[in-house]
Design a protein around this nucleic acid. Sequence first.
DNA 1: ATAAGGCTTCCAGTCACTGGAAGGTCAAGC
DNA 2: GCTTGACCTTCCAGTGACTGGAAGCCTTAT
Lengths: 130, 130
Amino acid sequence: MNISEVATRTRLPAKTIRYYEEIGLIAPPRDVNGYRAFRETDMHKLAFLGRARALGFTIEDCRTLLALWEDQGRASADVRSLAQDHLGRIEAKITDLEEMRDTLSSLVHACAGDDRPDCPILKSLGDATL
Amino acid sequence: MNISEVATRTRLPAKTIRYYEEIGLIAPPRDVNGYRAFRETDMHKLAFLGRARALGFTIEDCRTLLALWEDQGRASADVRSLAQDHLGRIEAKITDLEEMRDTLSSLVHACAGDDRPDCPILKSLGDATL
DNA sequence: ATAAGGCTTCCAGTCACTGGAAGGTCAAGC
DNA sequence: GCTTGACCTTCCAGTGACTGGAAGCCTTAT
């Protein structure tokens, strides 16, 4: 299987697949012509990576998850704690963003948004609350 | 005012302040010894930048906002539309993260997290739903 | 034989900093 | 006057996870 077919089937850009090889997440063998010859296992790993990345795991998390996935004797506790840490980070990020959203939203609503220069958004950003 | 005092007062790292100068957001004059000599206006700009960045505006947004802030004749509509676009992006990001959170949370709850290898998290990541 | 398209590598750029090295400056204490 | 330590300066490199683009080989069809 050549890279473009794998790209289509995993919905990952070819560039990303090459990058994943470069950083050692996959290691497809090569044909005599130098082309990467992807096996089913490579595709499965890439699909796994795509899903893990879509859940926001970092590449290093993905490396760990992939190793655990391959390790038939792993403890599910290891996976769970990694996922739980990640969940915590996501929740923290959501909280941060919600705070931004609330502040920004109230500013946007307070702003007339016409051709006059008076603007509570700029006023609030400029307020010397130091 | 030297950089460390400004850093303390604006709660921005000195490195960041130098960076903001490098990219042209501020332009503090220099003392004879070559040290940056921050004026009140520089500090106000930095405080403004700190608040705008805390609201998640990109540096380029900040550049625009700063210019609007300095422009006494600006239309508040310009500011408002910038803020509203940004608000939209934040809301989209929150939605994404909430989706991740929900999926991840259900997986974490489904996982026993003990020393057995059976793990719904890995199972779900590995499922060939291609 | 040639043209189009796919594959390869390598280099540079993204964003907003952050760390660290090498070296100049300043104030205090001896 | 000298040293010490805390400042300040610049410059270079690295972060994460790709992404774009150039230059050049390989394959397939005409």
